[in-house]
Design a protein around this nucleic acid. Structure first.
Length: 306
DNA sequence: AAAAAGCACAACCGCCTTACC
DNA sequence: CGGTAAGGCGGTTGTGCTTTT
């Protein structure tokens, strides 16, 4: 099972039964199989009836959640790609904690997963910086530091993919393109968490979210071309964000030049810029934790070691 | 080696909205 | 139009694993 999963098969056996006859707690493999089989045969919706007809001693709500967040065939698991991270930051800056709405733009990702990402990763760094995650200060950090960094990373990977496509003999890709850009569900991290059932192997496309998402924004990718397309889409989104938020002339982060220059240059410009926002950037060197910006920055992009 | 702290994530809870009667 | 059930959503909690002390 996924080493990161909080629930084990043993824990699943400990799901308690309430006085009303409903079970709660971790799902057992048998329950997953029953639910997945029933949905495959009869479709989604009418969850109370699903629970009843399938013989599951679970509430309809519980069945719905289990299906949407876990058993759905198209659900993606594993680390968020830089594109996804960028989109989350971007969309959250627009919509706030509208997790479901944000999730609609990250096909295969659930609102729960995005919410967890925000709370565990993003809020952690806000805390380390000593500011509130919803503060203007932290938003500026995201806009001027994290997001340009992500864009740069995406660009680098796209360039690497281009080089690979034009020079088929050269198989060695830059490290930046490995892992993040070439992310694909790792069997070791996509196993049904506590249960190990095979519901995820179905090719059935019954996505709740992807059906309403513009074609160009669909993420799951397995080829360099698709990676490039994704990077472009994200870059457009970022450029759109940039021009929308600040305009291209006043900040140096406009759509025209947003993707020029190195990360260090962008950082320097963020600090050197005389615009209204630069003064809001915190002094990371004096952060209480003792961390400076660079250690945080390295940390947030790194893949978890397990 | 053991304990404590931190982290990630599945699952639940409560509120709100929508659909149906 | 009002009541009720179901679905949807955001917030919160609980659990196990990993890392640190």
């Amino acid at each position: 099972m996924d080493a990161r999963c909080g629930w084990t098969a043993a824990a699943a056996e400990m799901a308690e039964e309430l006085e009303d006859g409903f079970r709660r707690g971790p799902w057992a493999a048998e329950e997953d199989a029953v639910l997945a089989g029933h949905v495959a045969a009869h479709g989604e919706g009418r969850w109370n009836e699903v629970a009843r007809a399938a013989g599951l001693r679970r509430t309809g709500k519980s069945c719905r959640l289990r299906w949407l967040n876990y058993l759905r065939p198209d659900v993606r698991r594993g680390d968020f790609t830089p594109q996804e991270q960028l989109l989350i930051l971007e969309l959250h800056s627009r919509w706030g904690n509208r997790w479901s709405r944000i999730a609609q733009h990250l096909p295969g990702r659930t609102d729960n997963e995005i919410k967890n990402y925000w709370r565990t990763r993003v809020q952690k760094h806000a805390k380390q910086l000593g500011c509130d995650v919803n503060s203007g200060q932290f938003r500026d950090v995201m806009r001027h530091l994290w997001m340009p960094r992500l864009v740069e990373r995406i660009q680098a990977a796209a360039a690497a993919a281009t080089a690979l496509a034009t020079s088929p003999d050269e198989h060695a890709a830059p490290a930046v393109a490995h892992g993040d850009m070439c992310h694909s569900p790792d069997p070791s991290t996509t196993t049904m968490s506590s249960t190990g059932t095979s519901a995820g192997s179905s090719s059935t496309s019954s996505s709740i979210t992807s059906t309403s998402v513009p074609r160009g924004e669909q993420f799951p990718s397995s080829t360099n071309q698709e990676h490039l397309a994704m990077a472009s889409v994200t870059a457009v989104a970022a450029a759109d964000w940039s021009s929308e938020q600040y305009g291209s002339a006043s900040t140096g982060f406009g759509a025209d030049d947003m993707f020029e220059g190195s990360w260090s240059e962008l950082l320097a410009r963020a600090y050197d810029d005389d615009g209204a926002d630069s003064s809001l950037l915190p002094d990371f060197q004096t952060a209480e934790t003792g961390d400076n910006w660079w250690s945080l920055e390295d940390d947030i992009w790194s893949q978890r070691p397990y």
